[in-house]
Nucleic acid binder design. Sequence first.
DNA 1: GCATTAATTGGTC
DNA 2: GACCAATTAATGC
Length: 234
Amino acid sequence: MDSKPECRTCTNDHCFVKRNYEPIKEDDFYSRKLTLRCRKSQQFILEGSPVQGLFFVYKGAAKVTKTGLNGKDQIVRFATDGEVIGHRGFGVGQVYPISATALDDTILCNFSTEVFTKMLMTIPTLTLDLMRFYAEELNRSEAKVKKFAQMSVREKVIDAFVLLNRVFGHGDYLNIVLSRREIADLAGTTEEQVIRTISALKKDKLIKAEGKKLGILDLEALKREIADFKYYSI
DNA sequence: GCATTAATTGGTC
DNA sequence: GACCAATTAATGC
């Protein structure tokens, strides 16, 4: 397998770092990143723990979660190849506001806060990219508040599937296997409701299942059902 | 095979 | 629509 991911040869061209790759003579940032390999279900960021820089998914997938009051997790977003995780802990001596867990065997690149800060000061386009990302994320989270307040359970589950299709929907089945609990954490409801909604959606021929794999049958019909909520879904 | 975890179903508030 | 309990299916060791 790839022994150590190098930014120079990396093919994740929507990764902020790769996209703004700029070898600097005085300090080779790229050689100072660490590589972390996670097995499926392995947690690599724990909410409330001290920040240890930020991560980029090199290969694989991860979920980013936040714990609610009653100890229930909410999936905030997913990150796949080339995407950042842990960027919000990017302040002074802070703790991470989220947890992150690998959904598959995943390889991560990790930049220390110190190194990444230097990079931001050296490469303006990298800073700009990150800023845009923060802004977008804020928009999405505001849209989500509205959504959670107004959608029915069925709509929330459908919305979750539309999102999953966008992130993991290459081919017949979703490119990821999530437990019912995880889908509930994503949709913002309970496991039981997800189970019931899934079987209803199967009966309606909107989605299909093969073992643990789930697939979308009629994306347009699903979108139509949540068309009234035309915000940005997650 | 046994034991733990996940999925499902039914019932109550 | 959430929470709880009981049953069944799936999976790990």
